[in-house]
């Protein structure tokens, strides 16, 4: 009984929260609309400032630099961080676990990881940007230049002069 009423109260609370927060429409460069909570959209400093400046919340925000696939993944991050509380140790641990799984999945598809990184930069989503750039940096760490080239699919394009300079730097480092 007690748990039943508790659950009902929680549901009512959630409903109140839901009705209290506005919904915002984000549109990808392919014209696909994504409706998100304001709390979720506010994870992006770019959108946050537009909303606070009294921008056209009702018309939604077109994002010409982000495709649908990338936007969907970015919104997945924003929903988790915007709509969930992070007050208790458990809540923070749940978010940390989400981040870990989220980045592990992205790391498996590097091209997509770069797209999400660029979107996080464009939308100024600090947490997501830190997560993805650190992931890329971790791929670089501890590798030789040759291993880095392989990991990132970079072609060797250094001239003999560059090689001379590198040798020089190595002796000073």
């Amino acid at each position: 009984m007690a748990t039943g009423s508790g659950a009902a109260a929680a549901a009512a609370d959630a409903e109140e929260k839901e009705s209290g927060s506005r919904m915002i429409t984000l549109t990808s460069n392919e014209g696909k609309a994504f409706v998100v909570t304001e709390a979720s959209a506010r994870q992006s400093a770019t959108i946050r400032s537009m909303v606070d400046d009294g921008g056209c919340v009702d018309k939604g925000f077109p994002l010409p630099n982000v495709d649908s696939k990338t936007l969907a993944r970015v919104i997945q991050y924003c929903d988790e961080h915007g709509n969930k509380e992070a007050h208790t140790v458990d809540e923070r641990a749940a978010l940390a676990k989400f981040d870990k799984d989220f980045i592990a999945e992205l790391d498996a598809d590097k091209a997509f990881l770069y797209d999400v990184t660029m979107a996080a930069n464009y939308l100024h989503i600090q947490g997501l940007f830190a997560l993805t750039t650190q992931c890329i940096a971790d791929t670089i760490k501890g590798k030789t230049p040759e291993e880095i080239r392989t990991a990132f699919g970079i072609e060797y394009d250094l001239t003999a002069q560059d090689e001379e300079e590198i040798k020089e730097e190595d002796t000073h480092a």
């Binding site: 890329i136 760490k141 590798k143 230049p145 880095i148 394009d157």
Partner: peptide, 27 residues
């Protein structure tokens, strides 16, 4: 796919002079 600005921020996250020097020898 990564812009120069973002690449620089990635490199700054290496926090290791040795890694930075190796990164500077990539391309």
């Amino acid at each position: 796919d990564i812009s120069d600005e973002v690449l620089e921020l990635v490199l700054l996250r290496l926090h290791s002079p040795a890694c930075l020097i190796r990164a500077a020898s990539v391309c």
